[in-house]
Nucleic acid binder design. Structure first.
Lengths: 202, 202
DNA sequence: TAGATTGTTAATCGATTAACAATC
DNA sequence: TAGATTGTTAATCGATTAACAATC
């Protein structure tokens, strides 16, 4: 049903960023403009937009506003997504304070930790909640996505809790891959893995 | 000269993690063990290790210690890499306090900011330095890699400074892609892009 | 020998890109 | 008409995987 390839989906947010930042007076963009911003080939852009069923005009380009709306709709950004952060350590706290997510359609609605010394602490507009509550809160439909900012050993147990409570997606920053049942989407971002890859090419 | 495919390099750190965490008494691992830990196919593992020129023993598996050392050497982890963090906001501060990097061969040696109110502030063992100094410090060989944790608008200018000062690699957390000259390696990690991709599949 | 596991081939897959006719 | 740019084809590329002979 998705229809769009993984690689195409990964590029849509980049196109969207250009379309949102572009001069309000610009009415059209070419595949070359989009390619430049996203760091890809212009033919690739045309193919992506074609897969989206979005048509441009030969000799002219693509209409900015309709394309922007089409990508937003495809990514589901017209309806906001609610995100919980798990782990109120350095990284979790930093993510909770980051205001850039709100502009992109994501609302951070809760942050959880196991440390009694942290529970109840205020971080921006949020109060750190007891991790014990997370299953109930997730099952109650308070959020659809979670960001894991926990130590390696806690990643899989927390992912299990969330999966059984019906979470849709997990973004995992813990230095440990987690496995989840079918139907739950996961992405891993591992800082030292990223640096090691860079280090190899540097 | 690299010889290893990008995809293979990206998997090596995952294999390494298993090899470092494994029971000290285990002398061998099979491609199936490594595949399970890394979330890939066993044939893929064998192909990767073969590309590395590392041989196993049929019917037995791969020797843990030599394989671990071989991967470390390939990734250049036997020599430590020095990393500077640019931007002492929420994220930059969290990264500076993160102790996981040291265990993986990366030393955070400096953190920079432009805000006079932050310059001189202590973060763990580091003192926030004036961004003005970064070109000189980089050119002096104080570090080889940089992590950008700056606002979107600052990413490209900072990347330009670092490139001209001879940086090897940049890990960019700013919500804005940067372009750099040949010879500088860059990776982008964009939190809201990651969430948008997840959101599509969730 | 019997069971396990490697190393490699061949098939397949998914994605990228050059090129160019179509057409604004 | 002349210039620009799309939409799509065909070629290519890089990576994955099943399968199995080799061999411990």
């Amino acid at each position: 049903m998705p229809g769009l390839s993984r690689a195409t989906v990964a590029r849509l947010p980049r196109y969207l960023r250009l379309l949102e930042d572009i001069d309000a007076e610009r009415e059209t963009v070419s595949s070359g403009d989009l390619a430049g911003a996203a760091g890809v080939n212009a033919a690739n852009v045309r193919r992506d937009l074609s897969a989206l069923g979005f048509q441009g005009t030969r000799g002219v380009g693509y209409s900015v506003a309709p394309l922007r709306d089409r990508i937003r709709r495809e990514l589901g950004i017209d309806s906001r997504r609610r995100v919980a952060i798990v782990g109120a350590g350095n990284l979790g706290t930093a993510l909770a304070r980051y205001t850039g997510l709100g502009k992109r359609g994501f609302d951070v609605v809760a942050i959880y930790d196991v440390d009694p010394a942290r529970i109840g602490e205020r971080i921006g507009e949020l109060t750190v909640l007891d991790l014990e509550r997370i299953t109930a809160d997730c099952a109650a439909g308070n959020f659809e996505m979670a960001i894991l900012a926990v130590p390696a050993g806690a990643a899989q147990p927390v992912a299990d809790l969330l999966s059984s409570a019906g979470i849709s997606s997990i973004l995992n920053f813990a230095p440990q891959r987690v496995s989840v049942p079918d139907g739950v989407a996961v992405r891993h971002v591992d800082l030292s893995v990223e640096l090691q890859i860079l280090s190899y090419y540097g």
